[in-house]
């Protein structure tokens, strides 16, 4: 099978997870799906660079993370990146109480610096191991754990979970 076919077919079952990761990175649903679109286009364009013995999910998650960083750089010049009050659209509807809680969480996430937000998305939302996240981000494992600890502290402070 041609590598582009293998990548294209391999990406189909990954779409839900890719959308979840993008939602955690980008915040709003529409922005997240725009990001997924860019990721799919890049992945297909670079299919020849994927080695079949490498996990496709981590390969495409790395593309997603880099595309998100690129997008933030582009947007950062023009406008504020995340309007926390708009980020409520990031999360799924639920009951009102759950919705309010998720709105708060989305706002807290939107306020994290990108370095912290991406470890939250990769480790806590996608469920990558520390090692896998470190490899993907090309940083030492200790950097992942320290960013994660600081991100958690910021989230909990924002959410008032310190009790």
């Amino acid at each position: 099978m041609h590598s582009s076919d293998a990548v294209r077919e391999g990406l189909i079952p990954l779409l839900p997870r890719l959308r979840r990761l993008a939602r955690a990175l980008a915040g709003q649903a529409a922005d997240a799906d725009d990001l997924v679109q860019v990721v799919l286009e890049r992945a297909l364009a670079r299919a020849a660079q994927w080695r079949p013995d490498a996990p496709l999910d981590k390969w495409v998650f790395a593309i997603a993370r880099n595309a998100w960083r690129d997008e933030m750089r582009t947007r950062g010049r023009a406008q504020h990146l995340f309007a926390p009050e708009e980020s409520g659209a990031a999360v799924a509807d639920g009951s009102d109480a759950r919705h309010a809680q998720q709105l708060e969480l989305a706002q807290a996430l939107a306020m994290l610096p990108p370095d912290h937000r991406e470890v939250v998305a990769l480790v806590l939302v996608e469920g990558l191991s520390y090692d896998a996240a470190a490899a993907l981000l090309e940083v030492p494992v200790g950097t992942v754990t320290s960013r994660l600890a600081r991100a958690r502290a910021a989230l909990q402070a924002h959410l008032g979970n310190d009790a």
Binding site: P16, R23, A92
Partner: peptide
């Protein structure tokens, strides 16, 4: 997880699956 896992069960927008 409660905030983001529901995305897994959403229908994938047609414009995305069409790319594949």
């Amino acid at each position: 997880r409660a905030a983001f896992d529901p995305v897994l069960d959403e229908p994938v927008p047609a414009r995305l699956s069409a790319l594949l």
